[in-house]
Design a protein around this nucleic acid. Structure first.
Lengths: 152, 152
DNA sequence: ATGATTGCAAACGGTTTGCACCTAC
DNA sequence: GTAGGTGCAAACCGTTTGCAATCAT
């Protein structure tokens, strides 16, 4: 997506188009996986876009408010991560070794949700599924490692 | 589970048995759902067990270290919650209205994990599935509400 | 011109830590 | 007696906020 398209997109969502917001969107779209506010902050410095960390947070919040960006908190890390919202339902595969996050688009949960709705009388509006494991590289370095809690 | 059994359990896991630890286990077992450190702290005051919040954290960490307790961070809340580890695999159904957390023991994910292992060449060691929705009570108060991001 | 956005520094809230004292074993 | 547990206060770290200056429209 080009800069001009991003400026367009911001305006369509009733947001002023600033170089900061464009740069944040650029970074998120390029990465195509969840990143922390601090990471974005550093990437912007590398791009010679001077910005304050609190402005990163404010923009991420504004973008999330408009639905352009999604904020997630993945287990085991206290900080939030953000990704460009491609409007597709995704799950995440987090490597316990190098902490890399892989997005997965296939979702097996819909029928399970209906089943739980029937059992509990809740109205279920969504879910979050994260898988934890070791990527091919870390798998080699940690052969046979088993975490204490497979659900965590 | 009786106090004596808990003292036993602590010792079997190489931990000193203190009134604080016993009380924390009592609370977690009674609740049978994830609670925050602060909640535990307040409950202990109600039980007339005087304790410092940092001791609650230290004990929860020690108990989690030994696998007696599980630490989880559920989306949308910055703070961690803890539950007694019944050694069963569980999922959580979080009410977006009243924030109540319901534990669900049926898990539909195993075969999905194998499929993802084949596709990605990762070694998957666990997963975390949280469902979000409205409990019967909150459902009535928020008819038709839809969150912006169903995956969050 | 006007309201939104920014940088800066200070506050915030959950969690952790250093240290002197205390307790279980 | 000794290793480990505790209270207290202070530090920590990711995040938020108040305010005055600046920018997009």
């Amino acid at each position: 997506m080009k800069k001009l398209d991003m400026r367009e997109k911001l305006k369509n969502n009733g947001m002023k188009s600033t170089k900061h917001r464009v740069a944040i969107l650029e970074i998120l779209i390029k990465k195509d996986q969840p990143v922390s506010a601090e990471n974005i902050f550093f990437d912007m410095q590398k791009m010679d876009v001077s910005i304050n960390l609190s402005t990163v947070y404010r923009n991420l919040e504004a973008l999330a408010e408009k639905g352009l960006v999604t904020k997630l908190s993945l287990s085991g890390d206290n900080r939030s991560v953000f990704e460009y919202n491609k409007m597709v339902h995704r799950h995440y595969l987090i490597c316990l070794g190098c902490k890399k996050i892989l997005a997965i688009e296939h979702c097996p949960i819909k029928s399970y949700e209906h089943q739980i709705e029937d059992e509990t009388d809740y109205e279920i509006v969504g879910h979050k599924l994260d898988l934890y494991g070791y990527c091919p590289k870390c798998k080699k370095n940690n052969p046979g490692y088993q975490p204490k809690n497979s659900q965590d």
